[in-house]
Design a protein around this nucleic acid. Structure first.
Lengths: 163, 163
DNA sequence: ACCTACCGGTTGACGTGTCAATGATGCTAA
DNA sequence: TTAGCATCATTGACACGTCAACCGGTAGGT
């Protein structure tokens, strides 16, 4: 009783004006939050949030190394996105790539010393920024609500994953 | 009282593990939501959400036209972003630019017939997608909470607008 | 009048993301 | 054996964003 064709109440197709306003506020605020976090991290460490995700995953990995596809699914990226990103990170000396010994066609991504150092220097300021921009912005109730909203949105996206 | 260094007030510097988990869920879910909306709109209309914002503003404008800087502040974009985007939209015939008669150095952005048509074809599917992916994902209480969270985040960003 | 400072707008360089196509290699079935 | 076929990863083309530099012109102050 949520969907339907034009008409039937309880089943309108389009958002109300209020819903639309909230939608706009919500999507714009979260986008602004993300981009502020991004520039904060950039200023504090010369890393992007993408770099940070990759370095975090590698730091926590066995031997500071992971297979490329494993890394991609771990951080939820498409393979080509990761490949492009690793190319840029490799040019900056943050990671290295080498043929994987165990898996035939696999490529192994290694954290370099420079990468580990950049990551460890970025961690504290990044977490502090999350606190300042997100945690401190909300009441404890709102933080809980934000978690539930995230879960609900994610569930909805997963349910509609066939588009 | 959880973390360390210069800790005055009941103000630890770093988020707790729970806060961090919620942060991650939240930022990832909203990013995924945005990109799903984007690809929905793309598939339904061959417009991006950026195109949509521009066309919406122009559609509602006096004479289907606006000065460039006015448009930029109306949709909250940086000037160079808008300039690049208008260049792409102009190549696709969605808008036109011409010297502004009233303001010396100003440039005026006009909606073309093709642009108006693309916009009107995109509106219904786009609103429907917002409903399916956002409104239908949440309870009425959660929608209200989402609005409050957006407002709180925005307020926090504005307060810290000096970085 | 002249110098300077700002203002509206554009441009170039570069990082980032997606999509589709391309290797390179193993697996399986005719 | 060999013709497909799936898998791992990369590449190229292109859209999008940001940053910093630039350009043309108007406005102030001296």
């Amino acid at each position: 009783m949520t969907e339907a064709t034009p008409g039937r109440r309880g089943g309108r197709q389009l958002p109300t004006a209020d819903e639309l306003r909230i939608w706009r506020d919500f999507i714009e605020a979260t986008a602004a939050l993300g981009s502020r976090l991004e520039s904060r991290l950039q200023g504090d460490s010369s890393l992007s949030t993408g770099d940070y995700s990759v370095l975090l995953a590698l730091s926590e990995a066995e031997g500071q190394a992971m297979r490329s596809s494993e890394l991609a699914s771990h951080i939820g990226w498409e393979r080509s996105r990761l490949s492009h990103h690793l190319g840029r990170m490799e040019r900056r000396g943050l990671i290295r790539r080498q043929e994987c010994a165990t898996v035939p066609r696999g490529s192994e991504v290694l954290l370099t010393a420079a990468g580990a150092e950049a990551f460890s220097g970025a961690t504290f300021p990044h977490l502090r920024a999350i606190r300042e921009l997100f945690v401190d912005a909300l009441t404890p109730d709102q933080i809980v609500a934000a978690g539930e909203i995230a879960t609900a949105l994610r569930a909805r996206l997963d349910v509609l994953a066939k588009d």
